[in-house]
Computed example of a mutant assay.
Amino acid sequence: MGAPVASESVETATSAGFEYIFPAIRGIQAGREFYVSMCPLRLIPKIFLYDEDELAPEVRAQRTLNKGRLPALTRYIVNNPNDYVFSALTASVDGDIHFEGIADRGVAMRVGQIRISMAARFLINDGQHRRAAIEQALKENPDLGEETIAVVFFQDSGLARCQQMFADLNRHAVRPPRSIGLLYDHRDDLAAAVRLVTMRASVFKGYVEMESSTLSQRSRKLFTLSSVYYATQSLLQGLKISKDQAHELAEAYWTAIDSEIPEWQMVRRRQLSAQEVRRDYLHSHGIALHALGRVGNSLLRESLAPPDWAQTLTRLSLVDWSRANTDWEGRALSGGRVSKSHQHLTLTANYLRHHLELVLSAEEQRMEDAYLRGES
């Protein structure tokens, strides 16, 4: 028996017709054989299918393709040709799979090649958006076609089995918290700037939860990395500054904010616990940080020099951040609970703009008027 193909599938003619040949490793799950292989990207759009959108959900084995996700996935591949990473596709084969091992015994009997008729149907159980993004990326950069992606092949056992595979593959899939994604993201310049700020600024150093995007009731942290990121994103939005200026300006701004919020300082002096501050005040919650970022952006658009905006921020000392302050209901709070909706964020920012004597935009004024009329 000849050695299996080492790098890609090969189309070959046999007495039974044309076949695909894939290098493969054979395994067993739940008593069923499956095969782990690789496939050149140029073949992905040609042989791997997904159910047509017009089919009813009950006769499909996948969710409808969300085309809105494709531009970002495509750009990820095209913009990072030297370090993109895609996990394996999982596919069911509606047709015979013939495995040929390179040996009859021992470990080598699990290594070999699989032969699949070209008349067989390949249905993706997991990875349909990756498949579609690969197709789009190949149109922009055909050179990617010679690269490969891992594929796990299962024998198709009918619609019910394929639907169950989709349910099982996605049942326990958990998207990682946004905070840890930002912590590990080295492509995002803003994420890098925010990480630097959280390590250098006294207001954040040691008090930012770097992994989870939520804080447990007993957490000793005041903020999450994701909330600091989104607040800083709003703060620096539209400003024409360098990477170095970004973290320096952000550090200066949040340090200025810190000087106007005594409770944050009291936590660092161990006069208050982080739990007490989060429970009784709003200023460490994501919506408050985001609103502070928004109003700060208005100030920075007028001048990047701290002396020009730091004095304005001193008026924040007049803000009653206590959750007992009834002014927050309908703004940062809804029924006594913190709300992060766009409307509540805008109304919270409006409240801060009022204290800082800043002018509202037309849209902000419209939402403020509706709130005052009791229509929010």
Rank of each mutant, 00 (worst) to 15 (best):
A173D: 06
T224E: 06
S226I: 01
A191I: 09
S212C: 02
D244R: 15
Q163D: 11
Q237P: 12
Q233K: 08
D185H: 02
S212I: 05
G181W: 05
L222T: 01
L196P: 07
L222M: 06
D185T: 00
L196S: 09
L239T: 00
V203K: 13
G206P: 00
R218E: 14
T232E: 12
L183Y: 12
R161K: 06
Q164T: 11
K205E: 14
V208G: 14
I180S: 03
R175W: 11
R218M: 11
R200P: 10
V197F: 01
H247R: 02
H186A: 12
F223A: 03
V228P: 14
H172T: 15
K243N: 14
G181E: 14
L169P: 03
Q245C: 06
A201C: 02
S226G: 01
K243R: 06
I241L: 14
V194M: 03
S219P: 00
Y230A: 10
Q237H: 08
A160L: 07
F223S: 09
R178D: 04
P177G: 12
Q217Y: 09
F204S: 05
L235Q: 03
Q163V: 10
T232F: 01
C162W: 06
L236N: 00
Q237S: 14
Y230C: 08
G238D: 02
R175A: 13
R218W: 09
S216Y: 07
V197H: 01
V228L: 11
M199Q: 08
L190D: 03
T198G: 13
R187A: 12
A167E: 03
Q233P: 09
A201N: 11
D189S: 06
